[in-house]
Amino acid sequence: MDRIPILKLGDFLLVTVQVDMHDRLAMNLQEDLTDKIVSAHARGVLIDISALDMVDSFIGRMLGNIASMSRILDAETVVVGMRPAVAITLVELGLSLPGVRTALNVERGMEMLRATISVYAAEYSEYHGDPF
């Protein structure tokens, strides 16, 4: 029933988490996002958690899952706008979010995604060779 909106921004998807998510909401977001990556042929996902003042182990794990799943679907995930207190707590919790790339804000996150994708594209064409 409850859903967090996912916006399409060119090749990327932007998710801005503005409410304190309960667990089901977080699970729903995970499902929606994977569906949307496929249907929108998205190459990157930006998850903005600047509004969250707390990330516990469940949400942390969810972020990690999103990152790994989207990678399998050929999309990079960047989590942006994490508050310092949240980062500290995550570390103290022993949560290092492996495989989740982070950026300071949405702008940086976009740049990061573009760079990554163009590198991939270059690698791709190098590997397959230019037809001419």
């Binding site: 667990d23 003042d53 707390m54 990330v55 516990d56 182990s57 469940f58 508050r83 310092p84 207190a85 949240v86 500290i88 707590t89 103290e92 919790l93």
Partner: peptide, 17 residues
């Protein structure tokens, strides 16, 4: 303080979950 608040909230979140 702020970070302490986050810590508390996170711990409560874990245990109540």
């Amino acid at each position: 303080e702020g970070p302490q608040q986050t810590r508390l909230a996170t711990a409560v979140s874990e245990i109540t979950r």
